[in-house]
């Protein structure tokens, strides 16, 4: 966790100080898109390779999914409602 914060802060400093030459302006986009796709693929591989997760999916899969869906729907609805109640709209927070 600490290492992740260090990398985020390092990126913030390099970006803010404009140490990145203009010709490398596309680098942040390339890093985030490429890194994201690599991360997703690797996470999939980790799940597929883990016999523990695969076994658990057969035993608890249905229950676990319903609980996960409950948490996702509940948290999204709560933030959506709280943002409106507190009048904290902003960019992208208009009704679709």
């Amino acid at each position: 966790m600490t290492l992740l914060v260090v990398f985020l802060l390092a990126g913030l400093i390099v970006g803010y100080q404009q140490w990145l030459p203009d010709r490398w302006a596309k680098l942040p986009g390339i890093i985030t898109t490429g890194g994201l796709f690599a991360l997703l693929f690797l996470m999939g591989m980790q799940i597929g390779s883990s016999s523990v997760v695969i076994q658990e999916i057969f035993v608890y899969g249905g229950q676990a999914f319903v609980l996960a869906a409950g948490a996702v729907v509940g948290s999204t609805a709560a933030v959506w409602a709280a943002v409106r109640l507190a009048g904290l709209g902003g960019s992208g927070d208009d009704d679709a």
Binding site: L8, G11, G15, L20, P28, I31, T32
Partner: peptide, 11 residues
């Protein structure tokens, strides 16, 4: 990834 996100935010 987080370095890239930091770069985008910092800029």
């Amino acid at each position: 990834l987080l370095f890239g996100v930091g770069l985008s935010l910092g800029r």
